[in-house]
Amino acid sequence: MAEIKNIAPSEHHDYQGSKMGMWLFIFTELFLFGGLFLVYAVFRTQYSADFHKAAEETNTFIGTLNTVVLLISSMTVAMSITAIQSNQKGRAIRLLLVTLVLASVFMVNKYFEWGHKFELKLYPGSEVLTNLPKGELLFFGLYFMMTGLHAIHVLVGMILLTVTIFRIKSGHIHTGNFSMIENSGLYWHLVDLIWIFLFPMMYLIT
């Protein structure tokens, strides 16, 4: 009977191919944000005094806090892959849950950060914002666009990681087939990677 089992067609899985596909997708994401980085670089050169003034308005403390939160969440994702590869299903799920909690902390901080800006009547299209000097207007436009687009990626990453948790529970992801957790992990690290560059651009360099 064992021999019959062995010749039964096994599930086809292209490990290298799926990872390559994920990397190709990551390249498109890098160029999506890369384009915005270029816009920022040119306008920063053109309106350096305005950018300097506007960048002092952003909250360096929240920016730093969110950097630390995202870096830790990147580590917990990387650790969950180690756990799956070492056949520690429960630990992998717990590490992903920690990642989701950290991602939520990031979003809550973002809510307070943006909320404060809105209280100061600084939001896209507001009267206060449109009356600012052109360079400051451009800085805040890029600030809302880039951190907003990044926050959408955080939300997408949270959905991906949630699906991954359910797929580990259902047994679809295991020591023999862990492409999905690796690829969701790559996506999460991409979110972290983009933030690593957004952080100095929006909060540190004044």
């Binding site: 490990y15 870096l71 830790i72 580590m75 990387a78 180690t82 590869q85 070492s86 023999g176």
Partner: peptide
């Protein structure tokens, strides 16, 4: 089933990388 060999990073190495990033 995949027969390829995969490198498994240790928990410790992830901790070290995080420490470097925080520093």
């Amino acid at each position: 089933m995949s027969t390829e060999k995969h490198h498994i990073s240790t928990y410790m190495s992830h901790g070290v990388v995080l420490t470097i990033l925080l520093a």
